[in-house]
Structure formats: C-alpha cells, structure tokens
Nucleic acid binder design. Structure first.
Lengths: 338, 338
DNA sequence: ATGAAAGCGCTAACAC
DNA sequence: GTGTTAGCGCTTTCAT
C-alpha cells in the first residue's frame, strides 16, 4: 500500500507538503504541486480515509436510518437526502432499521462510534418513553413525525393538516362514508393517530359523523396489507364510498383490491393517498395524493444536521413542518354517483 | 470522548485487556470481564471505529454502487444485499452512481481508499473499453450483466434466456406483433441488446418474422419513458398485440399508457415485464414478469465478495448466472381475441 | 490470563 | 512555502 511517505520520498518533499497538495491547500508553489501530483499519479497513491478520519475526527459521512430501503417512500426520500448531502460534499450511509425500536436505537448507538458525523433518523418505533435516549451529544435530526419533545431537531410531515385536506377533498367530491386504513400501531404517538386526527377534524368541519366501523387497523403500511384489508372489508359487507390511505403504497394496494372486488374507482369509491410517491401517477386509475414537499424536507434535514455538526455549541432543538399540496388525479375525480 | 485508556484506568487493567473484552476474546477471567464491562457501561465508552479501521485495515463495510436508489428494482436488490451482508456481520454503504460511467468509475476509485473492504457494483455504464479499469487489486463483484470479460466476479441476469421465455410466453398466448421497448443504449454491450437477443431468438424458434418497427428505443428504463413511448406508438398508428418490457418499471408505465389509450390488457394487448418487482403484483391488471432469483443473486454476490476479501490470493474471476421463473399474472392471461 | 511497546497513515499546530 | 513534531485510538506481537 502506497502511503503519503512514499509519495513524499518520491517527490523529494515532506509528507506535509503532500498533505497540502491532496487537500488543495493554497500556499504550495505551482512547481512543487506538479512534482507531487506526478508522484501521486505514478505510484497510484490514494489517501487512507481511515487514517484521515482518525486524525481529523471527521468522516464526511452522515448516516441515514430508514425503516426499509425497498419501500418507495423511503427510497425516494433517501435519494433526495443523498443528493442534498452530496451538494455539501457529504457521503450518506444508509442503514435499515426494519422499523423496530431496537434497531433504531442501535443505529443511534453505533453512530456515536464516530462512524458518521451525524445521523438522520426516520423513526417509526421511538416514542415518548425513549426521548431520554435521544439526549445524546451527537448531531441527530429526526425525520418524519413530530412524535415527542426531545433534545433533537425534527422535520415533521403535515400529518394532521394534510390528512384533513385529503379527507375534505373526498367529502367535497361527495363521499360520505370514508374508510380509513390506519396502519400499524408501533408507536403510541406515531404517524397513524395523527393522520386519524386529521380525518376526524375534516369530518367535524363538514358536520359529518365518524362511523368507527370505517376505521380499520392494518398490520403494516404495505400494498399487501392494504389490499387484504380492503378486500376483507368488502367481503364483510362494509359499505363505503371513499378511502383515505395513510400512505400511497397502501393506496396502490387498495386500488388493486377494489379492482379485484369489481368496485369502480372513482365512480363507486373515491380514493386518496398520502406521500405522492412516483408510482401514484402510474396506477390505473392514477392515485390522488397529499404531496409533502420532499425536496424541502431533505434539504432542511441535511441543512440542520450540518449546522449541528459544524457548531461547537449545540443550538436549541428546532422543529420544521413540511408544506404540502393536494394532487388531484383520477382516483378522486368527478362526484360520487348515487 | 471516552477512550479505551479511560476504561482501562477506571477498571484498573491495561488497555489490552479492555480490547480483549470488547472483542469477545477468550482467556479473560470472568471477574475481570465483569469489572471491565462495568467500567464501559459507567463511562459510556464506545469504540472508535476509525481507529480500529486504521489499525486493522478492515472496515467491516462493503460498498454497494447502484444507479439509483429510488428505482424499485435496485431498492429491492439493495434490501436483499443489506440483509445478506448483515448475516455476515458486514455493514453496507449504498452509493448512487446516477447510471453514469464516470460515477461508476469514481465509486470504484474511492472504494480503494480503504473505505470499504469490497465493492458490489451494479453497473450499467461500463463497457468493454473499461475492462482494464476493473483490473484492480481490490475485491469487486459486478452485479447485473455479463457485459465483458474482466478480472472481477460477475453475477449476471438471465438476460437472453429470460427474455426468450417472456416473448415465447406472449407468442403462446397468441400474440404475433410484439412491441419491445428497448431502454437506453448506454453501453454497447449492456442489458438491452441481450434482452433483444432473447426477443429475436423466441421469434426465430416460433418461425415468426421480426418487424423492426416494433423495436422502440426509449431514453430510460422508467415508468414515465415507457408510458410516453407506448402512447406515441399507438398515436403513430403502430399496431401490436403484445408488449415485452425489459424492466417491470417500464411495464407499469406501459400498462398505464395502454389504459390511457383505451386499449384493454390482456384482451387487446398482452404485456409482460422483467424483474418481478413487488409492484408487479399490484398493478391493474397485475403484471406478468420474469422473476430472476434475487435472493440467490444477493446471497451469491455477497458470498463471492467475502471470499475475495478473506483470501489473500485472489481467486480467478467467476461468473454466475441467476436462475429465473416466469410468473403469469393477469396482463398475459387468456388468448388474444381476434 | 494480562500487559508493554510499537505503529497503522494521516494532519494540526507550529516553527522556520 | 515547506518541514518537524507529535499524536489521533486502537490492536498486533510478543513477553510474562
């Protein structure tokens, strides 16, 4: 393995000068720089990042912990975070937590091994009881939900307002019995209850009663779980003319399930999702959705984290709620036929 | 920051003993181990991975370079690789190459900075001309295509045989004019030409001529590009009763485009994709697909890489082609109505 | 079963 | 502009 010493020897300079060259420091004479660069090329020298990390205490890498990389929502979010970090010269290491609290905490723990300069944690498992565990002297930004007060920055989704807008939209379109698939209940203060709050708020504003039978818990936020739930609901004789899905992936599953049941969307049932994943535009019918400003979320998350990394004295915890737009597509078009 | 020295001092032992404890070495007396563990817990000690990396020359991290994390195919592959690596105690750092040759090569270059112990490279941009660049003294496994001979291991997709099976399936179902969306042409020896070979082989075996007008190049492997291409084909008056999509993402776009054109699938047009991404089961109609054995691919890729990492003398380059199954779903059901 | 010495490759801080 | 010194935190080697 070629070291900085070897290059220095070959170029007839000191290791320090080589270091200056590879780090693009000024105050290196043009001729010296060329000489060193030539030695680097000839020997095929590459910096040893581990050594640099040890010496500087920085890794230029941030961790991104997400439940599962193969869920479209998180994949698309990860792509944006990688891009935002790249603009600042930071690498991103993606970790899967499997949506379990233990793994989320262990990611937090190993991050503090100085593997990363900071961590963006898209959490679904942590709750109020874990807030103390986030009280770490390490830059962390929580992404996704405003689930508890704590000593870290939060970027949260417009859970309540977005859900209310989605349900209001269905009501405007004539839906009166709106099914809600509630997702799992990992956290007592997680995302599903907040979106349910939005659902209730929209009903209240419209003067509509909420039929609790229409609130269906589902074991996961997946296409599969949603399809099964909606098919079962129809089989059980539940009647409804609208469905609010708390994630678009669930929306895709619902559209599929309704098609299997012979129900027409949007004529018989209007459907709307949440997240505006890329796929929503390509379903048949295309899926209306609440579109949080993902670019803003990614940019803000990285920006807050970088501030925390660079500032010696930790700023007070900050909270940002992303904006959103309602995207109308075919699945909620027209008015309910009665 | 708490170091191994601090722990040693607190426990009244030498740093070496602490090291033995944290690395689970045998030959540490039970009582000593407890004493050290207690000091670790009390001080909140965490190993400094950078220091360990520098000393051992190992990072316990492998790199995974994929074109884009937010494409379902790669996201789902990445999830499997992360799982396979995790089973061996390896972390995975995912890098996006953006499907450009430059980024693929630069990933290769920075990997050799000893950031990773090895690299799994899902390449779409590298071609025959770049084979020399892969001649590196660093463990690399190429994933995806068998595009060139070279000094590295390859895990390849059943491009030709899988495509032939897909097209044969459409022919069996009565399709005679089968559209093929060819994807982009980044590499002269990339995946699209191989899948085209399969398309031609199936036609030949069936004694069917190939109408070159049915071979449509598309700028990207995306839902969007495929939808636009198929809508344009219909608008241009092209007639066809089958579509072979070289990726399922393109299949999703094609289904969407055909729906917009008022063409019925599978009655008017039969469609089949390639990859068997999770979404294929949830489209309306559900999408038939060629399902390469992704679990095997991921497992093999990691296994070959680990062998290369652990063996001092590099084994000869190996090649493995994944098996596949044809998954029949609604999009190719029944026979073409004539 | 435990420890002393040495050094992995790099760069911060400072001298010149 | 360039070089010297020192040390980041850990583990390999070898002694005891």
């Amino acid at each position: 393995m070629v070291t900085i010493q070897d290059v220095a020897k070959a170029a007839g300079v000191s290791p320090m000068t080589v270091s200056h060259v590879i780090n693009d420091h000024p105050y290196v004479r043009e001729t010296t720089r060329d000489k060193v660069q030539q030695a680097i090329d000839e020997l095929g020298y590459r910096v040893n990042i581990a050594a640099r990390n040890l010496r500087t205490g920085r890794t230029s890498t941030i961790g991104l912990a997400i439940p599962e990389i193969d869920r479209p929502y998180y994949a698309q979010l990860a792509a944006r975070i990688v891009a935002a970090a790249g603009r600042r010269g930071l690498r991103v290491a993606i970790e899967q937590t499997g949506a379990t609290k233990e793994n989320e905490l262990s990611t937090l723990a190993t991050s503090r091994n100085r593997l990363y300069d900071g961590l963006i944690l898209a959490t679904v498992g942590l709750g109020f009881a874990d807030r103390e565990l986030l009280n770490v002297d390490f830059p962390v930004v929580i992404l996704g939900e405003r689930i508890f007060d704590g000593p870290v920055d939060h970027i949260s989704m417009p859970n309540v307002s977005g859900s209310a807008a989605a349900v209001e939209h269905l009501i405007e379109r004539g839906a009166r019995r709106i099914l809600m698939l509630q997702g799992n209940e990992l956290s007592e203060l997680g995302m599903p209850p907040l979106r349910l709050d939005g659902y209730r708020a929209a009903h209240e504003r419209a003067g509509l009663p909420v039929d609790e039978a229409l609130l269906i818990p589902v074991p996961a936020f997946t296409m599969q779980a949603a399809r099964e739930a909606v098919v079962a609901a129809v089989a059980n004789g539940l009647t409804f003319d609208g469905v609010f899905c708390i994630t678009d992936s669930m929306g895709v599953g619902v559209l599929r399930g309704l098609a299997s049941c012979g129900l027409r969307v949007p004529e018989d049932v209007k459907v709307i999702g949440f997240d505006n994943i890329d796929e929503a535009e390509f379903t048949v019918p295309s899926l209306s959705s609440i579109a949080p400003d993902h670019d803003e979320m990614a940019e803000t998350a990285v920006s807050l984290l970088v501030q925390r990394i660079e500032q010696a004295k930790r700023p007070a915890p900050r909270e940002v709620e992303a904006g959103f737009r309602l995207i109308e597509r075919e699945s909620s078009a027209g008015r309910v036929e009665r």
